[in-house]
Design a protein around this nucleic acid. Sequence first.
DNA 1: CAAATTTTAAAACAAATGTTTCAAAATAAA
DNA 2: TTTATTTTGAAACATTTGTTTTAAAATTTG
Lengths: 192, 192
Amino acid sequence: MARLVEFDEEQAIQKAMEVFWKKGYAATSMRDLTDAMQINSSSLYNTIGDKHQLFIRCIKHYTKMRIRAVEQRYTNFASPIQALENFIKDAADIITTEPNSCMCVKATFEIEGDDPEIQVVVNAYDDFTHQLLKGLIENSQSQGEIDSSENADTIADYLTSVFIGWYNSFVLHKDRTKITNMAAFMIRQLRH
Amino acid sequence: MARLVEFDEEQAIQKAMEVFWKKGYAATSMRDLTDAMQINSSSLYNTIGDKHQLFIRCIKHYTKMRIRAVEQRYTNFASPIQALENFIKDAADIITTEPNSCMCVKATFEIEGDDPEIQVVVNAYDDFTHQLLKGLIENSQSQGEIDSSENADTIADYLTSVFIGWYNSFVLHKDRTKITNMAAFMIRQLRH
DNA sequence: CAAATTTTAAAACAAATGTTTCAAAATAAA
DNA sequence: TTTATTTTGAAACATTTGTTTTAAAATTTG
């Protein structure tokens, strides 16, 4: 055998992710990345690969983080409608607190379907959220908290759409009240 | 005086806009632009300016087109709630028909508040839509078609958010039915 | 320790980037 | 028609881009 890899790959991916997350794919240069990761480009190409492969690793890392956080928070909740309301409030909170919009949303609008590999990762994340919301909606429906005549898939899609719009709103207006007002309105509408 | 400008500036801006709209700001090169515009870069710099100034012209052109189309369609409508429902259906239609997502949405997520000049243009467009929707909502409220206890600004923000989410959904799933289902659900919710 | 093998750092790479230069072409006014 | 002024096309510009090369450093195994 021979020399070992010096840098911590997880840590390096995390740093690269932060740069991609902020600047987007095209606007990020390899120098930006190696500076943040604190490794030489030869090491990067040697272990992870080129810019595109690095991005894939980063966005996978992002979605994994996100999914883990949600899984921790939404196991064993009091009632499904309570969980749902909390999810909505959490979304409002994350959107108005974090420095950047969702990395998947940014990537989706930047790539616009022209990169199947990225799309697979984003779709998997989207699907995870969708299934979680759908489950909460269905349970709320069977407990009579949400109109059972409405399709749970459609409502789940709908909620996701609203959240993505909130990211946009917050970039444009930086107005937390706008978001919390919409969140409250949305909850009222759902319970009708 | 002296030699006149040969190319049609409006036409050239239109062509440049199409490229920026599709590829985004960072991923578009000056060669991409001059190829599409069919002019030499010296002419471009001589008349319009650099890449950034050209982008501003393009996104202004985009919003002007959009605003004009909406103004034509939404003057003198039968009833405000009818106009509102039509607006929602039109949004669903545009989103599932056009080859790219809204140029303003793409620019917002790409730039993320780091470019005040772009932001001003996008905000003006957002404000136009907001005022139009707000007016329709207020009129629907006074006619008893929408709950008057809800704030019209919040509902207008909310509708805009949903539309933006639809763009995202359509990039990910290319499923028109998802969008029309959400549109129908949204209209039902609003009329409660 | 010596051999084998891999990672690293620094430099180099060609290609692409946004922008400018400059002479030739074009035209309105004198 | 000449003069003055501007636009154009082609080439050139310096940087920056993503990526590779090369030799030295490092470490496990024999």
